[in-house]
Nucleic acid binder design. Structure first.
Lengths: 302, 302
DNA sequence: TAAAAATACTCCATAGGTATTTTAT
DNA sequence: ATAAAATACCTATGGAGTATTTTTA
């Protein structure tokens, strides 16, 4: 059974008149009569009772009319949806994210997506680490990931969203809090509250310390920024983290910039090759949100 | 979008191979490639990624595959259902019935219908009177009615299902209970518990009494048989009702046949003209259930 | 280089058009 | 008598076939 025949039947059944239905279908009456007859033969069932004065539906015709309408609407909807997905205007993006993007960058992205890509459904998995995310991208378990470069090796492309710099967070009474700006080398005897070993920030920190000639002493690991800050506030050690992570929530904490602070970038990454139209559209949406030097809306000093 | 194209697409998407899909569709590969290309052009959307080694689905293709399968199944189901309704194997019959058929005849009909016409849905309205039912049939509010002839006039056809005869029911101590068989004329001085005036049984009774030379004195009307019998048992009067209504439920009641008992028939009626295939099938199913003399499985005497 | 999809072309089935007839009110 | 559907016949679009080329793993 062809959708064309269904459309023809619905037109005739609704108009109860072959002539008017033919007009509505932009065709002549005789071929319409033929096609309806053919439909009835195909279904081996009389659908219409015709006299020269009126056209009436048989019970089978009533059933067909009701259900054909629904089917045709569903088909139309399907066509629309396929078009939307094809144009990258609708669909699901599985987005991984580092924990430190959750509170500043992610809300902006989600807001922008909701406004500009209403057909997009974002499935966010937060609190992931860079190697986890690159692996998930490579294996197709994620479509996009917000992570901190560097990216180990293969098959991952990315676009910078934010260029950030490391800064130091100290407990309020700490002697180094007297200095307006700190040197990394001056921290060699401190105890550090660190992000997990495999995290991008920790990788950058350890490498920077190595260049400054020491290995940082890890007092405690903390996988979330809030935990890390509370450990620092409790005096368990000092923290080193991206400036953007700071906002003045606690008087027991003091932030100090680092001279020649190592850069930590935030980027959106995808598997190299052909990202889907949807992913491409989302990346276009991200591009204007990207900026290259630390936060501008908040002052990280003190 | 044509169902043919959907079928083609589903075949290719499932086989992930144009050649095999073409085989499955009993056609050559080149026209299949062309048709899929055409579908993609119609939808303005790439559905498949082809290389010479493998065929893969785009997100739009995945969506189309999933939903096209559903749509095609629905279409198939619709075709089946229309066929069933067309052949009168499925659909709804609105069946009216006189109250006195509810306990003997109706269960047999319903059982037979459930067994032989599983697609049939019977909507039964019981406790109706003959004139109500003929009117409802004429106006198309009922498809069939189980009623007692005669049918007043117009446009109603019927088939006899049961030929029954009137009998008398007496309170146990009644003088007439001594007789094994009664004459209607002998009841001229009795008080009667009657069915409603417009009921078919009452019509037959009044006419029979008129011919016997009297007008029955109505002590009480009762629209249901059970009510009527309880009034008789209470000694409020005697009853006259079809033999088939009797079964020995009460020792306070005595049944006696009437000599030359007037016939009361039970028939199934429909609007004259072209009953639908469904109604015709149901009538065919009823025909073998019809019988012409009173109950054979139960003995109405005493 | 070999398997598979795409292209080029040909053909014919059939959807749709026009002219006319039949039918029911 | 007339409006409307059915029939008869014709045309041409496009779906499907065969032969061949292109592509990429």
């Amino acid at each position: 059974m062809d959708t064309r025949l269904l459309r023809y039947f619905v037109a005739v059944a609704e108009e109860r008149h072959f002539g008017r239905a033919a007009q509505r279908l932009h065709m002549a009456q005789p071929p319409l009569s033929q096609q309806i007859k053919q439909l009835e033969e195909q279904l081996d069932t009389q659908l219409l009772v015709r006299t020269t004065r009126k056209v009436e539906l048989t019970p089978a015709g009533e059933l067909l009319l009701a259900r054909a309408r629904v089917l045709l609407l569903e088909l139309e909807q399907l066509e629309r949806d396929v078009r939307l997905v094809g144009q990258g205007a609708a669909g699901v993006i599985r987005l991984g994210s580092t924990g430190s993007a959750t509170f500043r960058l992610m809300p902006r992205l989600i807001e922008a997506a909701a406004a500009q890509m209403p057909g997009l459904q974002l499935t966010v998995r937060g609190e992931m680490l860079t190697p986890q995310m690159t692996e998930a991208l490579a294996e197709g378990r994620l479509d996009l990931a917000i992570l901190r470069p560097p990216v180990s090796g293969q098959d991952i492309e990315y676009m910078l969203l934010e260029r950030d710099r490391l800064s130091v967070v100290l407990p309020a009474g700490h002697p180094l809090a007297a200095e307006p700006e700190l040197e990394l080398a001056g921290l060699r005897h401190e105890k550090f509250i660190c992000y997990p070993q495999s995290s991008a920030v920790n990788t950058v920190l350890v490498e920077a310390c190595r260049r400054a000639g020491f290995v940082p002493a890890v007092a405690q690991e903390a996988s979330e920024t809030s935990t890390l800050l509370s450990f620092v506030a409790a005096g368990l050690g000092i923290g080193v983290l991206p400036m953007s992570q700071y906002f003045p929530h606690d008087t027991k904490l003091v932030f100090r910039p680092l001279r020649n602070a190592p850069a930590v970038d935030l980027a959106i990454a995808w598997k190299a090759g052909n990202p889907s139209a949807l992913v491409r559209n989302f990346l276009e949406l991200c591009a204007p949100l990207a900026f290259t030097e630390g936060p501008s809306d908040e002052d990280p000093a003190d």
